[in-house]
Structures are given as C-alpha cells and as structure tokens.
C-alpha cells in the first residue's frame, strides 16, 4: 500500500518532470506531438473535474440551509440564482432560431436568454462595482496609512506622489519636469528592480521546482 500511496505518485511526478524537460530540448516532431497531446489532456482533466469546486461551495451553503444557521436565507438565494442560471443554460434557448437546443449543442453566445439577462443585469454590474471600489479603498489606504514612518517609507511616499502627480494633465501645466520625472522613475529604477526581482523569482522557483521533482517537496500530496 505504501507503494501506491507514496512511491508511485513521487515516481510519476519525477518521470513526468523528466518528460517535460526533455520536450523542451528535443525538437523532434515526436516531442512536438507529445506536447500537443498533453495540452489536450490537461484541458480534458479540467473539464472532468469542474464539478469538484462547485460541489464544495454548494455543500457549504446546503449545510447552512439545512441547519438553518444565521443568514441561511442568503444561501437559499444563492441556490435560487444558481439553479435559475443552470436551468437557462441547460434549456439553451437560441433567440436567433427561436428554439431550445438542449445542453448537448453549442450555445450561441449572443442569445438573449435568462443567462444573458442575469449576466448583464447582475453579474456584470456587481463585479464591475466590486472592482471599482478599489478606487475608494486605494484612496482611503493612501490617506490613512501612507506615512513616512521610516526612511524607506519616505522613499516610497515621494516616488508615489511624483508618479501620481505626473499622471494627470494638471502637472504638465505646472511644470514639464513632473511628467518627465515620473517617466524616469518608471523607466530606470523601476525597471532595475523588476529585473532583480525576476532573477530572484526565477532562482527561487527553480529551487522549489527541483524539490518537487525530487520528492522533497510533497505538499501537493497533502502531507503524509
């Protein structure tokens, strides 16, 4: 049993890693085909496992409804919307032909059915608004927590102020130097740091990848 639970996964990971590395260095069309095939595999894998995540979320809310925990009404609402959208998706109504095609035929993405309406009236404004709240939060964060507590923080502050000012047309009217400085910060120091961080990230991730490959890092197995 230990073989199946432990050695088999580790040796499979190692073998697949070797195949992955090989496919980069071997240009032969065999390795080309192998890469193409793995792309198909991983896509199919994603398609087959798509219900696991939904199951987890629905279970949490199902438990909430069953136990009538605080706020179970919202969970019921979540279910209502989930079921509505899924039903509309399964019916797969096509406004162009005026027929319901069922879930086994391709969906016309331009069709105006319940899914489309809910997407446009609820999902789209809700997620766009959630995104736009960042505008409030960023200002609030800047206003309340942006203090030159240390020299480093002061450097960050000054750079941020220059760039912020350089970002609006007003600054050019005050002085042409401000947009120039903001561009300069962007093009030189920012670029240098980018590069250094990329070096570091590369070495770090190669290190971790090697540990995974040789079975030292096994967190993907969920511990022993």
């Amino acid at each position: 049993m230990r073989f199946f639970k432990f050695y088999l996964p580790i040796s499979l990971a190692f073998a697949m890693a070797i195949l992955g590395i090989t496919s980069v260095f071997v240009p032969h069309h065999y390795s080309d085909n192998f890469q193409k095939e793995t792309v198909v595999w991983f896509r199919v894998l994603g398609g087959v496992t798509m219900f696991i995540g939904a199951y987890s979320l629905l279970k949490v809310h199902f438990n909430r409804i069953r136990r009538q925990q605080k706020g179970w009404g919202y969970s019921a609402l979540l279910y209502a919307f989930f079921i509505t959208v899924i039903t509309c998706a399964i019916v797969n109504y096509d406004t162009a032909t005026g027929k319901s095609k069922g879930p086994l035929e391709a969906r016309n993405m331009a069709t105006k059915d319940g899914v489309n309406w809910i997407f446009n009236a609820i999902q789209r404004p809700a997620s766009a608004t959630q995104y736009s709240l960042l505008g409030f939060f960023i200002c609030s964060a800047a206003y309340r927590t942006f203090r030159a507590k240390t020299v480093e923080a002061a450097v960050l502050l000054v750079a941020a102020l220059i760039v912020m000012l350089g970002q609006v047309p007003l600054s050019a009217t005050i002085s042409g130097a401000i947009p120039w400085m903001s561009n300069w910060l962007l093009n030189w120091p920012n670029m240098a740091v980018k590069r250094a961080i990329l070096f570091g990230i590369c070495v770090g991730s190669v290190g971790t990848s090697l540990r995974v490959m040789f079975g030292i890092e096994r967190s993907y197995m969920g511990g022993d």
Binding site: I21, V24, F25, V26, P27, H28, H29, Y30, V206, G207
Partner: peptide, 24 residues
C-alpha cells in the same frame, strides 16, 4: 530533417544543470 537535440539551447541546458546541481 527531424532533429533530436536543440543545440541552440545548449547554454540553457548547462545553466539548468549547474543551477540544479548547486541547489540540490
């Protein structure tokens, strides 16, 4: 012709080995 090794990636291969050997 089909080729079995991408010689232009030789420096990459060496770099990979050097990096891997040092870290491991």
């Amino acid at each position: 012709k089909d080729n079995w090794f991408a010689w232009h990636k030789l420096n990459l291969l060496i770099a990979m080995f050097v990096l891997g050997i040092i870290i491991m």
